[in-house]
């Protein structure tokens, strides 16, 4: 790793504070750290010795400028990045394993004793999400299958969250979601559905803008 020796910068010829020593002079006995803490506390309670010191006021202004620039630094970094194509997205997605969220194996019947047929819990959750998403104004959230899903015939309760947008009547939406989910589960799986609990957990407007 290349190194470069940098001489200590001589004191700035401009402002009243001299930063060349361990602590800048002209701060009337205060330190930069004290002033920074004072800013953190929104200058409350007021400290006369700081407020009455011209050197401190200059240094405080400098610290505030630094803070302002710091707050927006990352956002400006993002704006300054060159435009990229989508390959960075696909290279990230390619590394993700499907098994991580596959969950339990849900059995499907077959007479043949050598057959081991299953649908993953992840696949069923995807089914439930699709069914609910198809209801106008609904975006599905979390899905839970409660019960011994790995045992054929055991009763299972489906527990889902759904977000409803644009002021659709809530009881109606919950009902529609329940019916859509039930239809899809009956069609594709052999789960013994004891209940489908739908929680409308949020009513929100679409996000303004895209990536915000």
């Amino acid at each position: 790793m290349k190194r470069s020796k940098k001489p200590i910068t001589p004191a700035s010829a401009t402002g009243a504070a001299d930063y060349s020593g361990d602590e800048p002079e002209g701060l009337d006995g205060h330190t930069i750290e004290e002033l920074n803490d004072y800013l953190d506390d929104d200058r409350t309670p007021a400290r006369e010795s700081i407020d009455n010191s011209p050197g401190c006021q200059i240094a405080l202004a400098a610290l505030e400028r630094l803070r302002g620039l710091t707050l927006t630094l990352l956002d400006r970094d993002v704006l300054a990045e060159p435009a990229r194509d989508d390959t960075w997205v696909s290279s990230i997605l390619e590394n993700l394993s499907r098994e991580v969220h596959a969950g339990r194996d849900i059995p499907i019947r077959h007479d043949d004793t050598a057959a081991r047929l299953t649908i993953t819990e992840g696949a069923v959750r995807g089914l439930i999400r699709s069914a609910g998403d198809g209801v106008h104004g609904v975006v599905m959230g979390r899905c839970r299958l409660e019960g011994a899903v790995t045992e054929l015939g055991e009763p299972v309760t489906v527990n889902v969250d759904a977000a409803v947008i644009w002021g659709h009547p809530l009881p109606d939406a919950a009902d529609r979601v329940r019916r859509a989910v039930q239809a899809e589960l009956r069609r594709h799986t052999e789960l013994n559905l004891a209940a489908i609990d739908v929680t409308i957990h949020d009513v929100h407007a679409p996000r303004a803008g895209g990536t915000g």
């Binding site: 499907r98 991580v100 969220h101 596959a102 969950g103 992840g122 959750r125 995807g126 999400r129 998403d133 198809g134 106008h136 104004g137 609904v138 975006v139 599905m140 959230g141 979390r142 899905c143 969250d161 977000a163 947008i165 949020d202 929100h204 679409p206 996000r207 895209g210």
Partner: peptide
């Protein structure tokens, strides 16, 4: 969905992604 996922809130996206 009528609402594009692009516009969905972080919480919704995180919940769905957590489910796979």
């Amino acid at each position: 969905p009528v609402v594009s996922l692009d516009e969905a809130e972080d919480a919704t996206l995180a919940d769905r992604a957590a489910d796979g």
